[in-house]
Simulated assay, not measured.
Amino acid sequence: MKTSWRSASLLASAAAVLALTTACGQDGGGAGASQNVGATAAPGDIGDIGAGAGDGLGAGVNDGRRSASPPASAGKLSVSADTELGELVTDGSGRTLYRFDQDTAQPPKSTCDGDCATAWPPVAADDAIAGEGIDKALLGEVTRADGTKQLTIGGWPAYRYAKDTAAGDVKGQGVNGKWYALAPDGKKAKAADLPGLSTRNDPELGEIVVDKNGMTVYRFMKDEAWPKPVSACDGACLEKWPAVAPVAADDTEGVQKKGLMSFTRSDGTEQQTVDCWPIYTFAGDEKPGDTNGQGVGGTWYAVAPDGKPVGAPKK
């Protein structure tokens, strides 16, 4: 009987390993011996993770400095139709107006000063005129740190984007995941809602996975998927490569369902996987369509619909 009990125990253990193997298969992309979920990279590995989050134009944190110049006049506000974003507000020159997620609407408050206000010039309130399609009752003003009056729409302080050089430009849309064109009601002008995970065709990388905001999703080659997901990105790494939060299987489109799961990281938070590989976004990607994280440090790659790293060297 003792021998039979041991045999049964061994069979049960083998079955458990087989179940994990079936759920989280290995594609040779860096899996090795099992570690604790959320294990950190070895000392010195952070240097391989990549550069910081862009040029800082979207940082937007009030650094205590005054705006370099007073807000530019708004003129007659209009409603323009964008093929991707729908209706959005433009100023008298046809320039797109934006709102910032770190501001508040109730009460109105601007947190963009100094370098931020240079990249995102505030719109003056004094000469704003409600044109066709603009509800005058939604127009207001907020007093900035330098004492100037800034236009608000639906309570949200309004800005232009310095990189918009022509009427109709919307280059500021989605920058750093915090800047959005203003809709006539003061809400964010944005494309139709995307699933939690879906795919898009990139002109250089082919079909890749994107998150609900259309941002490119990446894999870290030092992570593991077998026999269970293990993230090697913690601390400073996570600041540059935020983990993708769990997504329901029925809230995905075009992504392989096998190995589509979440796991608990060492810090207790949940992270999504594709084919059991942990997935991330990149802080250096400012807007949908950016792939600035591709190939960073030779360890970060966009994710194909089947979970494989796009463009990673074959082993």
Rank of each mutant, 00 (worst) to 15 (best):
S73W: 03
G206H: 06
Y180H: 11
A145L: 07
G254N: 14
G54D: 04
C233G: 03
V175M: 10
A225E: 13
D251W: 01
T291S: 11
D55R: 00
G60I: 12
I129W: 00
A42R: 13
G131Y: 06
V296S: 12
A14N: 06
T40M: 05
V255W: 11
A232V: 00
G284K: 06
A105H: 11
A166W: 02
K190A: 15
A124K: 04
Y161M: 05
G32T: 12
S231R: 01
G186H: 10
A128P: 10
A53I: 05
Q256D: 15
G60D: 11
F100W: 11
T22C: 05
S67N: 14
S198K: 04
K212D: 15
D48Y: 07
T3N: 11
G114F: 07
A31E: 14
G25C: 00
E84D: 08
D306R: 07
V61G: 10
V247A: 07
R99E: 01
A283I: 03
A243Y: 05
L151F: 01
A236N: 13
P313C: 10
G25V: 14
C116F: 03
R99H: 03
G154V: 07
G172K: 08
R65H: 01
F263N: 01
Y161Q: 01
G235R: 08
S198V: 11
P227R: 00
D250I: 10
K315I: 11
A41T: 09
A124G: 14
G307M: 05
G206W: 03
